[in-house]
Design a protein around this nucleic acid. Structure first.
Lengths: 238, 238
DNA sequence: TAGGCTCCTATCCTTCCGTATAGGGTGCAC
DNA sequence: GTGCACCCTATACGGAAGGATAGGAGCCTA
C-alpha cells in the first residue's frame, strides 16, 4: 500500500502510465534483451499475440505457459524470471491462490496479475498477497510494455485509475446507479450468500437485506437474486 | 448449418484448422495487402496486439474499434469491410443483438464473432444469426490468421471442435460429471429461471427440477442455485 | 434374471425468498 | 424550515426453494 509507485504522466488509451518524463527514454531501453518474462494465459490467441508484441517491440525473452501448473513447472525448471505474468482467469488459479504458488516458486518476487475483467478490489488483494503489479487487459499494448519493463526492474505497478476509490463507480455505468449499501449487498449476492448471511456480515436485519435485494433486482433489471448476481458478474463488478 | 466449411487438416494449439493441404500456401498469400478488416474489442491490450499480429504477419489492413457503436460508425463511414471481427463481450453487444446491427451495417455479410469464453452453443446461434464465423480466443494466433483469410474470402469458418456435440462435455471437466438432463437444468439456472419455468421449458414436473437442482448443487459444491449458476458461468459452461 | 444405474414422479415438511405496507432515522438542498 | 433521498426496521403473507423419503420406468450389464 505504501510503496506503490504512481507517477501519472501521459494518458494512453485511458490509462495513465507510470513513466515519468525525465527518465523514460533511458528506462525503456535499458534492459532490452535481458528481460526474461514468463507469460501464462489459457487463451492461445491472447498469449501468442501479446508475447509476439513483447518480443518484437520490447525485445523481451518471453516463455509461455497455458495454465498455472505449467507456469510453476517452467519457473521451477528455468529458475526465477524477471517477471511472471499470470492471467487471473486461468485453469489452476483459483482466485489468488495461484498467485501465492507462483510467488513461492519464483522466490517470492516478480509475479504480476493480468486480468480481463478488472475489478478494482482484486488489484488491492493481489498486491496485498505479494504481487508486483496488476495489469488490466483494457490497458494499451504500449502501456503494457512500459509496465512490464517497470516491473522487471523490481518496481510495483498499478494503474492509477484503479487506485482511486471512485474508480469502480466511474468505470462501471451500472455501479453509478447503486448506493454504497446496495453494492455491499450485491457483493454478497455474487458470492451466493443467503439474505441471513449477508445480514450477519453487514450487521443488519434480514428484512433490510430483502429490501436491498428487491431494489437491486429492479435496478439491474433482474427477476431474482440469481439473475442479479449473474448480471453483476457479467458486468465485471465483482 | 449446411454450408459450414470444415476440412480438418492439422492440429494447431488444440484446434484443427480448416486449411487443406493442397491449397494452403497459395491461399494464405493470395490476398495479402488487400484484406480490409475491422477489429472491435474493448480490451485495448488484446485489440492492439492482435491487430499488430494481423498486420505484420498477415499484411492485413486493420481498423480498430472499442465498442459496438464505434464499430458501426466505422463500417458506415469506411464502407463495407472484407471482415468484421466483433468481441462477444463488449459494450453495446447485448448478446447477439450487436451482431445483427453490424451485419446490417456491413451489407449483411462478413461479420464474425470473437469470444473469450467459448460456449459451443453460442457459436451455433451466431451462425444462425448470419455470422460468417466464430473464433474462440483459445485458438492459436496462426490459426486465427488462417481463419481470417478464409473468412475474408467469403467462406464460413467454425472450429470443428465446437461442431461436435460432445465437445462441450469433453472440454469441460466439470461437465463430465453431469448428466444430459442436469446440463439442461443447469442452463436454466444460468439464465436465472425459476424451477417452475425450467419445468415448463423441459416439459417436466417442478419437483423433478428441484431434485436435479439439489444434485447439481452437490456436484458443483454449491450451497444454493445462485452459487451453482455462478460456478457454471465461471467455468465457462454457458 | 437379477442387479445396478439414471431419470422421472410423488408427498410431506421446513426454511427462505419476494412483495407489500407502514413506519422512523439521518443528511442534504432549496 | 420543508422537502427529498437514502438508509434501516417492523409485521405479515403467498410462493418458491430446499431437503427427506419412497417408488416406478427404462436401460445396460453380469
Amino acid at each position: 500500500m505504501l510503496n506503490q509507485f504512481s507517477m501519472p504522466q501521459s494518458k494512453v488509451d485511458g490509462f495513465e502510465t507510470l513513466v515519468a518524463v525525465d527518465w523514460d527514454r533511458e528506462f525503456l531501453n535499458r534492459s532490452s534483451g535481458f528481460m526474461r518474462i514468463l507469460l501464462a494465459d489459457d487463451h492461445d490467441m491472447v498469449r501468442e499475440t501479446i508475447s509476439a508484441y513483447l518480443r518484437s517491440e520490447g525485445g523481451a525473452e518471453v516463455t509461455l505457459a497455458t495454465d498455472l501448473p505449467g507456469a510453476i513447472e517452467q519457473i521451477s525448471g528455468d529458475g526465477p524470471y524477471d517477471l511472471v505474468l499470470l492471467d487471473y482467469n486461468m485453469p489452476g488459479m483459483m482466485g489468488l491462490d495461484g498467485l501465492a504458488k507462483a510467488l513461492e516458486a519464483n522466490g517470492g518476487k516478480g509475479v504480476a496479475i493480468l486480468s480481463g475483467s478488472a475489478p478494482a478490489r482484486t488489484a488491492q488483494d493481489a498486491l496485498d498477497a505479494g504481487a508486483i503489479g496488476f495489469i488490466p487487459k483494457t490497458m494499451g499494448a504500449q502501456s503494457l510494455l512500459n509496465a512490464v519493463r517497470f516491473m522487471s526492474a523490481g518496481e510495483i505497478y498499478v494503474p492509477v485509475d484503479l487506485m482511486r476509490e471512485d474508480a469502480a463507480a466511474s468505470t462501471h455505468p451500472l455501479a453509478e446507479k447503486l448506493s454504497p449499501r446496495e453494492l455491499e449487498v450485491l457483493d454478497g449476492l455474487c458470492r451466493g450468500l443467503s439474505n441471513k448471511e449477508i445480514a450477519r456480515e453487514l450487521d443488519l436485519q434480514e428484512v433490510t437485506i430483502k429490501l436491498h435485494v428487491r431494489t437491486l433486482c429492479r435496478k439491474l433489471d433482474a427477476k431474482n437474486r440469481t439473475q442479479a448476481a449473474l448480471t453483476a458478474k457479467e458486468a465485471g463488478l465483482f
